[in-house]
C-alpha cells in the first residue's frame, strides 16, 4: 500500500505529466479556455489512464513478453496493440458520457475522440513498460498521472479565465501567454520536489 501511495504522489506532483514531460500538451492548450470543459476532459483523462494502464500491463506481460502466452518476443507489436486498446477504451468512454451526461458530451465535442491521440495516455503506458512497474504500481501510476494532468489543466484554465482581463501585448495574447504560464507553473510545481515519498511508504 505504501508503494502505491508513493507512486501516486510522485506521478501526480513531482513528475507531472504535463509540466515535466510535456505529455498531452495539445488538448491541454486547446481545451483550457474555460474551467468547466477543462474539468470534464480532466476527469475523462483520469478514467482512461486509470483503465488503459492495467490493461496494457496485462497485454505486455502475458501476450507480448517471452514468458507470455505465445512464448515469443512480440514486443515489436507493442505500439499497435497499445494504441488499439486506448482507441477502444476512448470509444467506450465516449458512449458512456453521451448516455449519462449529454451536456458534457456536447461541451467536450471533438476533444473526446482526441483523447486517443492524447500523448499522456500512450506515454503513460510506454513509461510503465520502460520503468518496469508491476500491476499495482501501474494502476497507481495511471491514476496519479491522470490526477496530475487534471490538476494542471484546471490550474491553467483558471489562470487563462482571469488573464483575459489583463493587458497582455497583442502578439502574446492567447497561445504565447499560455506557454509562458505553463512554464511558470512548471517551476512552481518543482517546489513540490521537496516531498519525500518515502514518508508515505512507511517502514518496509
Amino acid at each position: 500500500m505504501g508503494e502505491f501511495i508513493n507512486i501516486f504522489i510522485k506521478s501526480a506532483f513531482i513528475e507531472n505529466m504535463v509540466l515535466a514531460y510535456f505529455l498531452g500538451m495539445c488538448s491541454y492548450l486547446a481545451v483550457s479556455k474555460s474551467v468547466n470543459t477543462a474539468f470534464g476532459l480532466g476527469l475523462a483523462v483520469i478514467f482512461v489512464l486509470g483503465v488503459t494502464m492495467p490493461i496494457n500491463w496485462l497485454i505486455n506481460e502475458y501476450l507480448l513478453s517471452e514468458t507470455g502466452l505465445f512464448g515469443q518476443d512480440l514486443t515489436f507489436l507493442r505500439f499497435i496493440l497499445f494504441i488499439a486498446v486506448i482507441a477502444s477504451m476512448v470509444q467506450l468512454v465516449e458512449m458512456v458520457v453521451e448516455k449519462f451526461s449529454p451536456a458534457l458530451y456536447s461541451a467536450l465535442g471533438i476533444f473526446l475522440p482526441l483523447i486517443t491521440v492524447n500523448c499522456a495516455i500512450l506515454g503513460g503506458s510506454l513509461f510503465m513498460v520502460s520503468r518496469e512497474y508491476n500491476l499495482s504500481n501501474s494502476i497507481a501510476f495511471g491514476l496519479g498521472g491522470g490526477f496530475g494532468w487534471f490538476l494542471a489543466i484546471i490550474a491553467i484554465a483558471a489562470i487563462r479565465e482571469k488573464i483575459r482581463y489583463s493587458d497582455v501585448p497583442p502578439a502574446l495574447r492567447g497561445l504565447g501567454m499560455a506557454f509562458i504560464l505553463t512554464g511558470l507553473m512548471g517551476i512552481a510545481f518543482m517546489s513540490l520536489m521537496g516531498i519525500d515519498p518515502a514518508v508515505f511508504a512507511g517502514p518496509k
Binding site: 506557454f179 509562458i180 512548471g186
Partner: peptide, 11 residues
C-alpha cells in the same frame, strides 16, 4: 529544466 522550453516557445 523542461520549463525553459515553454518560455522559449512562448517568446
Amino acid at each position: 529544466l523542461p520549463a525553459a522550453a515553454m518560455f522559449i516557445i512562448g517568446i
